[in-house]
């Protein structure tokens, strides 16, 4: 039978805008450290002196024991998939990235399946949100071993990590 409909009259609208780019946001220098490491294929995490967790990318404070995470530790670029989700095939007109069509601007091939994953890199205690490349969606599973796919030209930027691929 389907959904019940609720039809209502529409009154005039008054239009307005709110420029969210007008804010003066402040950030920490932690990402600067992180991307400097990426240039040398190093994944940097912060080390908690309280609970010994290593968080990648680094954080200022430990969310559990609230200690300053001043220590640094380089973790492996190999890790384990702790979670994954699978997109349907992405065709032209299906998805928007910052208002642009990812197929049209060549970010994905027409009909490509995208697999976002959480990866726990060896030596870290956190999930890093990235994407699984060069894998058949049928083979992906929690516990799958993966390694970082580094960009051809490392520039010291977040884009240096293109994603991960099966080992």
């Amino acid at each position: 039978m389907g959904y019940l409909k609720d039809e209502r009259p529409t009154t005039i609208g008054v239009e307005g805008g709110w420029n969210l780019g007008a804010y003066h946001y402040k950030g920490s220098r932690l990402l600067e450290e992180y991307v400097a490491g990426l240039k040398h294929k190093k994944l940097t995490g912060s080390f908690c002196p309280g609970c010994a967790r290593v968080i990648v990318p680094p954080r200022n404070l430990c969310g559990r024991c609230h200690r300053k995470m001043d220590g640094r530790k380089t973790v492996s670029d190999r890790g384990t998939i702790t979670c994954f989700v699978v997109s349907p095939p992405i065709y032209k007109g299906k998805l928007k990235v910052l208002g642009m069509d990812p197929v049209e601007i060549g970010l994905v091939k027409d009909g490509q399946v995208v697999i976002p994953v959480f990866v726990k890199f060896d030596g870290s205690d956190s999930n890093t949100d990235t994407v699984l490349l060069n894998a058949d969606p049928k083979d992906v599973h929690i516990g799958m071993r993966v390694k970082v796919v580094w960009a051809k030209e490392l520039q010291g930027s977040l884009a240096d990590v293109e994603g991960v691929e099966p080992i």
Binding site: Y34, V35, L107, V131, A159
Partner: peptide, 12 residues
């Protein structure tokens, strides 16, 4: 810090 459009596909 260079988060690219390619990185953003998964996020989208």
């Amino acid at each position: 810090y260079g988060l690219s459009l390619k990185n953003l596909v998964a996020t989208s």
